[in-house]
Design a protein around this nucleic acid. Structure first.
Lengths: 213, 213
DNA sequence: TTGCCCATGTAATTTGTTACATGATTTA
DNA sequence: TAAATCATGTAACAAATTACATGGGCAA
């Protein structure tokens, strides 16, 4: 009975599944609450959609029968709505979540790295300042991750979210190390560029002829 | 607020700057070449736009006076075009690249982590299999990064791209370690110790990835 | 009583993708 | 000469954002 329906399930964009995923944990929530939760947790390893899109996805999920809502106020328009996942929604989500082929490789959009890549256009000190600033921001992010983890750890049903956040914590730790190494690389590069560089570091194979003139 | 020209520069989407960035290295290139370069390099730390969007951005950049093209064939439509950056384009790009505030924190969209986060919906073995598969894919990606780096290292003007790729190499190494740790966490959670037989993979000190040097 | 947070939604717009159309050049 | 790769572009569509409109509840 399952073979013909699978095609349709796969057609949803990742954001829809992410929102449905938020609903797959015990309890009903409003779109607003979902947004806050995404901001404080999902965004660390995935991404937090705009609130307007969350509402749009909730409508779509309800149409598909994957989610159901209960109005708190009167039956008028724009009454407060709490959403919950349906059995059909849970089943569809489980199918999607078990399909690795859908996942593809992780996508990273690293604004700082893009700027380092364009380092030939910037002042060396400016570049260093940007990297240093990134170090600070990352440290703050790490604190946010830990905060989220501390909160998630209090809930008994959130073992997997805690795992994901633990991964995120380590990921931020790694990012800090990566950034330190980058800073060191940057220093090494400047040493080669003839700024009266007394610290002539050993050169790797392939990196010959500094060509500063 | 007081300077009127700065505002306009900032209005371009990151993709436009990334494409202009590709043009900021010596030499002229076609849209097609830009796409291949983005696929083999940019995508590791930023993102590779669709070819149709590259053409669209090139048109926009030319309109703005940030890029200029030379037709190889006759003046007809759809002749081969090579693009180069203009001085105005270089200046605008330098301004953008020096502005950290534009960058924002790095965005990660990690499909596997989203699935781990939803681990309560999947079979434990399925989850393990997905993580293991990710390990393999990441190893392959790492090889691609190294390939790109070997190529970039031959060009004298590509010192910063090499730095970015070096960062990417370390990042993939870190990803491998993170994934191993995740696997261990998963084991701890499920208490799989007796199920899969001898999955007593020794955790060697530091050597989880193939290092070519 | 002003301002902030909660809460939902619409509209306009931008961003980006896939599918398609077209043809030149290279290679087997 | 057939196929692959190079090369450019259009059109339709999907995804997602920002700006806006609306209003309740609560605290300073």
């Amino acid at each position: 009975m399952t073979s013909s329906q699978k095609q349709k399930k796969q057609e949803l964009p990742p954001t829809a599944w992410a929102v449905l995923g938020l609903l797959s944990f015990p309890g009903e929530r409003t779109g607003y609450e979902l947004k806050k939760w995404a901001d404080s947790s999902l965004r660390f390893f995935y991404w937090s959609p705009a609130i307007s899109q969350i509402y749009a996805e909730l409508r779509r999920l309800e149409e598909l029968g994957y989610a159901a809502s209960v109005r708190s106020g009167p039956e008028e328009a724009r009454a407060k709505r709490r959403y919950g996942i349906t059995p059909a929604g849970r089943e569809a989500l489980a199918g999607w979540a078990s399909d690795v082929s859908e996942a593809g490789p992780p996508v990273l959009k690293h604004g700082l790295l893009l700027r380092v890549w364009l380092g030939h256009l910037a002042e060396p000190e400016r570049l260093r300042a940007m990297v240093t600033e990134h170090l600070e921001r990352t440290t703050e992010e790490l604190a946010s991750v830990r905060e989220a983890m501390a909160h998630a750890a209090t809930e008994p049903d959130w073992a997997f979210p805690v795992l994901a956040l633990r991964w995120s914590e380590r990921q931020h730790l790694a990012e800090l190390e990566l950034t330190q190494a980058l800073l060191a690389d940057l220093d090494g590069l400047e040493g080669l560029e003839g700024l009266g560089g007394p610290h002539a570091q050993e050169r790797q194979s392939g990196g010959d002829a500094p060509t500063t003139g």
